[in-house]
Amino acid sequence: MTTTATKTIPAGIAGQSSYSSIWKKILMAVTGISFMGFVAGHMIGNLQLFQGQEKLNDYAELLHHLGGLLWIVRGTLLIFLAIHVWTGIRLYFQNWSARPISYKRQESIETGLTSKTMIWSGLGILLYVVYHLLHFTFVVTNPEYAGLTDAAGRLDVYSMVILGFQNYLISGVYIVAMLALAFHINHALPSFFQTLGLNRPSVRPWLKRLGTLAALLFFFGYCSMPAAVLLNIIKLPGGGN
C-alpha cells in the first residue's frame, strides 16, 4: 500500500497490532466510568464541608480507618488510571497519524468542542490529580498542613481545605481543573453508553443531555466549595482566617 505519510510517530505508540480499536474503546469506557463513580463519591463526601468541622473530620477519619479496603480502592484506581491515560495517549497519536494530509477545509456537523478536546481536558485533569495528591495526600506543596489536628486530635481536614481555598491561586487552579472535568464528562458519559451498545436512537438525545447534566452537576458541586470559602460563607474554626 502506498502512503504519502508526512506524520511519523514511534511504532510502539502508533501500532494498532497490540490490541484492537474496539478493545481500546471498551477499556476507556470501563475505566472511565469507574473514575466517574469515584468523582461522584468524592464530591458527595467532600460536600460535608458545609456541615462543619466535626462532620468532615469524622468522615476523613472513617476513610483512613477503612484499612485494606482503602488500599484496594486506591490500587484499582491507580491501575485504571494508568490504563486510561496510556490508552488515551495512544488513541490520540494513532488517530492523528491516520490522516497524514489534512484537509484545507473541514467542517464539523455533529461533533463539538468537548469531544475534540478530550486529550487536553484529560491531561489537564491528570496534572491536577498529581498536584491534588501532592497538596493534600502527601502534603508536599504545603508542608504546614502536616501537623494540623482538631480538638479531638484528628487530622484537621476541614481547616486544610479552608486554608487551601483561601489562596486565590489554589482556588483558581481548582476551578480550571473542574472545568476540564466538566468538558471531559460531557463527552465521556454519552460515549460510555454508545461504546457498550446501549444506544437505541430513541434514547440518544437523552444520553447527550445526561452527559451535560452530569458535567454541570460536577462543576457546580465541586466549585461550590472554593466559592463558599472565598465568599467567607465557610470560615476557619475559632474565627481565624
Binding site: S21, I22, L91, N95, T111, P190
Partner: peptide, 20 residues
C-alpha cells in the same frame, strides 16, 4: 475488525460525524 485495524484506519472516539 482485525483487518480494519491492519489497514491503518483511526479509532472511533464517538464524534458521530460519519452518521451526519
Amino acid at each position: 475488525v482485525a483487518q480494519m485495524d491492519l489497514e491503518g484506519f483511526g479509532n472511533c472516539t464517538n464524534h458521530y460525524e460519519c452518521e451526519a
